[in-house]
Each structure stands twice: as C-alpha cells, then as structure tokens.
Design a protein around this nucleic acid. Structure first.
Lengths: 137, 137
DNA sequence: GCTAAATAGATGTATATACACGTAAAATGT
DNA sequence: ACATTTTACGTGTATATACATCTATTTAGC
C-alpha cells in the first residue's frame, strides 16, 4: 500500500517537528542534538568526524558543518589526531554535556509521551518497519 | 519505546532517499514532485499557493520557492487571481504533466516494491502510526 | 467610508541536505 | 623508495526547511 509509505513520511515529519520545538529552547537543532548524543555515547573518548557521520540517522548530513556550529557554541572541541593527521577528533566540552543532559531529559519525556503505545505495539511497529527496510539493496 | 521513534525517523529517511534517487532521473526533487502531484489532483483546475502548502507532507515547506524552480523548468505557470489579487494561482503545463506521469510510474513501482508487505501488515502499520499521531496536541 | 486587523504570498537569513570537488595524509602495489 | 589509489575532511553550490518580516490586498469593526 502506498498509504503506508506516506504515513511513515508524515509521522516522521511530525516527530521531528515536535522534537525540534523542544530543542529550540536549548538553542539546538535536531541534527546538532544528534551529533551531541553520538559523542556522549563514547564520552570521554573522542570521535573522528567519520565515526560520527556513519552513526547519523540522516546519512547525508554534512557533519563538518554541524560541528562548526557546535564549536561556535563551545559545546565541542576540534583537534587534529596525532595518529592519523587526516582525522579531526571531536570532544564534548563540559558545557556541551550540561546542555545535552538537560535537553535529553526533555526529549526523552516527549518521545515517551508520543511514541507511547504499549510494549507489544512498539515491538510490532519495529518489526514492520524493519521488514520494510529489508528491501534495502 | 524510544527505539520505535528512531525506527520511524530512519525508515522515513530511507524511503525519501530511495525516492529521490529515482526522481533525479527526471530532474525533480522530492518536494517538487510533491507539489506537482498535488496540482495534478485538481487539474485542470488551478490552485493557489496556500492550498498547495496545506497539502504538503512537510508542512513548513516554502512553497513559493519550490514553485520558482518548477516555473523555471516550465512545469507550472503562475498567474495572479482576478478574484483575490493577493492570490497567485498555479497551473500545471503540458510539459509538467508529461514529466509527472512518467515519474509517477517509476515512483509508484518503487513504493510498491519497498512498502510491500501484505495488505494486513500495511493496515496494521497504518493503525499503529495513526495511533502515535493521535498524541497530536 | 475609513481605519485596523487579517490574509496571501514574496523575500531574507540561518541551518540542513545532497552531492561534487579539492587538499592533505595514509595505505598500497611494484 | 616512489607512484597510484584511497581515505578523511573541508569547502562550494543548489535546494529545502524553519521562521521572521515586508507588501499588497481583503475583510471586519465602527
């Protein structure tokens, strides 16, 4: 059914919009928030740009430029790697962690409120979505 | 479950990317294609910008600028309404219809291939997604 | 009828997406 | 060791998103 495709697109837009509204309060965009969360996952280890990029939901995001903006806001730091001079390693700053933690509370609460449904429904939904993406070629 | 939220976002990104790849062959972006489809729905009647905007999936799309690009490619025509001089009415051109029909064939085939699953699964998926969006406030 | 408010759409700005390309460093083949 | 290829990242461009603002109308209040 075509309707299912539209439904997925529309629900995703809606989720993203709701999240962005909450994040605005913290001066973050959706994608900036994603980068911070990815960095937090490895913290206090550093990550190179490529590692961040391949963990993004939107695989074509231009990570260097998202990092530009996070750097201006002093939420992350850039340094070139000594092991491989091509790499730029990124570290969360304390300020970044503080903002991230505060915004994560709000975002998680929102997600739980929205994508509520019960455990069984969630499992079913995940199965269906994964079944669709199995078509991946 | 948070996972369900991420799953929806990721699946939507994936669907959009697959569609965009097909549309590129016709020189269309995803959103330009959406505008053409909306216009086709009323054709040969005209539509004003506002009517198009409220039918878009991504509600914050900047429709006048998407129309700018379609106009350059001569797929639509702009004219100011005589009833309400504030309104700009948009019409599909024959060229627009030709491109749209050709691309729709390809897109529909893709959608059927991807969002395959069977009728029952599709109905279930739609129900779950709509259940989520019921949270809409 | 005239002023105030609302509406339609164009336009400007910051950020993001999609993708091409450039540069420097690293890895590989011989 | 040197030339070729690959990789990591930055940068440029076109388009889109999100949102604010401007202009020209139209509508509503009085």
């Amino acid at each position: 059914m075509q309707k299912a495709g539209l439904n997925i697109l529309y629900t995703a837009w809606w989720l993203k919009t709701m999240m962005s509204k909450e994040l605005k309060e913290f001066g973050l965009t959706h994608e900036q928030y994603n980068v911070l969360r990815i960095l937090k996952g490895k913290h206090p280890e550093q990550m190179c740009v490529r590692d961040i990029a391949c963990r993004m939901i939107e695989k074509n995001s231009n990570v260097p430029r998202i990092i530009d903006r996070l750097e201006i806001k002093k939420m992350v730091k850039r340094a070139s790697s000594s092991l491989d001079k091509r790499e730029t390693v990124i570290t969360l700053t304390q300020g970044g962690i503080t903002i991230l933690d505060a915004s994560t509370l709000v975002v998680n609460r929102l997600m739980d409120e929205l994508v509520l449904v019960n455990e069984k429904d969630a499992r079913e939904l995940n199965q269906l979505l994964e079944k669709i993406r199995l078509q991946e070629k």
